[in-house]
Design a protein around this nucleic acid. Sequence first.
RNA 1: GGAGGAUUAGCUCAAUUGGUUAGAGCACCUGCCUUACAAGCAGGGGGUUAUAGGUUCGAGUCCUAUAUCCUCCACCA
Length: 808
Amino acid sequence: MLDNRYDFKDKENKWLNYWNNNKVYDFKQDKREVFSIDTPPPTVSGKIHIGHIFSYSQTEMIARYKRLRGYNVFYPFGFDDNGLPSERLVEKECGKKASEIGREEFSKLCYSITDKYEEEFRNLFSKLGVSTDWNLLYKTVSPSSIKISQLSFLDLVNKNKAYYKKAPALWCNECLTSIAQAELETKTINANFNYINFKSSDNEVFTIATTRPELLPAIVAVFINPSDKKNNHLIGKKAIVPTLNIEVPIIGDEKVSIDKGTGIVMCCTFGDQTDIEWWNKYKLPLKNIFTNDGCINDSVDKYKGMKIKEAREAIISDLDNNGYLEKIEEIEHEVQVHERCGKEIEYSIINQWFINIIDNKEKFIEIGNSIKWHPEYMHSRYNEWVNNVAWDWCISRQRYFGVPFPVWYCSKCGKPIFADESQLPVNPLIDKPNSKCECGSDDFIPEKDVMDTWATSSLTPLINMKYKEESNYENILNPMSLRSNASEIIRTWDFYTIVKSYYHFCNKPWENVMISGFVMADKGEKISKSKGNNKFEPIDLIDTYSADVVRYWAGSGRLGTDILFSMDTLDRGKKLVNKLYNVCRFIEMHLVDYEDKSFDNYEYFDKYIINKYNEMEKQYIKYMDDYEVGLGLNILEKFFWNFCDNYIEIVKHRLYRPEEFKNNARYSGQKTIYMILYKLLQNFSPFFPFITEEIFQEIYKNNKSIHLTEIKKLDFNFENNIENGDQLINIVSDIRGEKTNKNVSLKTLVESIDISLSNELNIAFEEAIDDLKATLNINNINKNIMEDSEYMIKNIVIESNNEKGTRV
RNA sequence: GGAGGAUUAGCUCAAUUGGUUAGAGCACCUGCCUUACAAGCAGGGGGUUAUAGGUUCGAGUCCUAUAUCCUCCACCA
């Protein structure tokens, strides 16, 4: 028998071990159709917060649901321990910079520290009941992932999609590496708009407003909009930079907005993306004045060695002292910062590897069109991003920890030499190329850079399919069935995966994408470190409420829609789980003598609840097939409360008192609750894997696990009209209401009622009359038949001390 | 500035895709210890579905504006 109280700590632990020992979630290829899930490998450097729990749970529920629908579910888990985020974690833990520790030692630390965190992560996700096959676990810096990532790179080189070029790149002088467009974030800061007086070659004074005066030494031109009547006469002249006495051309270009600042712009190499465009367009010279770590370099005598901000102040005070500073305006404006460290980005010109994405944007849109997006509107977020991509994807990172490029450069002719596939995984710093350079030289310079983390995480489908390995899943995972992630990484993870899949296979990486929303704090703001509103640790929530209840919270709400973190929802889940357990204790009690046999003489309300169930299940399946786990749970929950509060109350007396209501009526009830509970447990099992297993194993013995059963439709075709049944429930409700209004207990005897019924409803009423009388404890029912389709209750005479019957 | 989403009870969310009286939970009020559950049950109050138009026999749902909020992107001179 089920325990009186459900001790979730004990039971959840028990079932975790059971599933583990019995390999319930292990993947083995068989005849069944495969449903494969490409779920985000969490970055081990961050803490798991409730946002992860939200998003991962929803995917997990789909995995369980698909199992119930008879699919062979391929559900691997991964950890993203690659690259810069791990480096920053390690630097933080050691309190030292990578450069102080040394390349080799630092790499070792990265491996050991990320291992430690992965163990924590794995524990947490296990406790949550994530039904992944841990044998399929991958890491983004393991030898096999490095090999696949290098294979991918070589394939792109062969297909002329990857190229090496000295080009302006986004540069982070905190992390000392170039970064990709997708790694930018915008941040609002307070800044000074400095109005600086320039002179033209014929001594006319004009003013330029800038937030970045320290770039003055890097000035290469001044721009004015040709249709700017006030200033366009200056076009074609020269501008003389105050105090520095640099002379640069004044050029006309439509990109200048006339009403921003003074309408006159300086172009420096480089202050922003427009500078780069102009530099390219007008073949301007290059003046690089910064060192890689954010100081002024030796090319500027006066300010060399200063940090960017120091130089800014120094230049402003020099300008001011010489009378060139017209005024300073305080403004608030947005700057681009590196998402990993929050520091403002600069531009730098270095040799880097790029992946061409600009030339195939249409193809990426096409592939996006061939994928089903859930919810559908997330598709336009993808399109929006692809259409706005302005740069090729820079995958070089001047860092230590990550996937090395399988490349050396010939020290004589500079030609890049690529590793053989057979050599992979390769580390060019240690290994050597298999053959000489074409020029005959065998002296090589290894590529020191590592790849952007997205260059590898964009390969999760290939990692999962064990791309090019001897025994692999290429036949079943190309494409995979489902990609799942939050909306913020559509532009990175989803996009780059599509890019890679197109280049490698000319195929889409997955059939479906499901996008979850964000978890917001109470006030409706995004949970983030900077706002300090991440109050709840997932592990504490699981310990307090149980994994099932935490999953209830995670499974509420619509797909793609942001959700507020709410204790109320947790409490609601707690009540639901508790109710489920209690009703099962009741049901188990009445099934002790139950034997499953064929039977077709069901009572009215039994047929009603079966029909009602079938109606609900249809909708449940529709929602779940559309990845709307929250809506599926919602209608299931609604049915369940109705089942408990109405149906169980009605069937109760038959179960308790067969001597009064006959064995047939009792068996009808037994069989109905036996069948429906089975279905309900199945339906709830994606959300509450633990408690449903506990109950299932107790009541429906001889099964390995509820999670290995299959949903099959209850095959009945009762002609009962559900609406009539609903009406009878309303009648029950009305009479109960009357008892409540009289402040008497619900078991109080009703002496008599007068009721008018339509013909049709009367037939149902007659069929159900024993249940109705017993449930409501009514002695006499006086009936009238009327034309209306409604019913009318006229006199309810309740036995009570002082009160007489009342009119309703 | 561009794209997308949202706006329904005091709060958090539903509403079978255009169909009867817009539903749940929390909170509030009133009862009830009922052989599963008082962590429960039965009731009650609470709504101009953001605003204004339009389409339709019929609109929370569709179309057009407006307002407010959220997310992503772009503005960085």
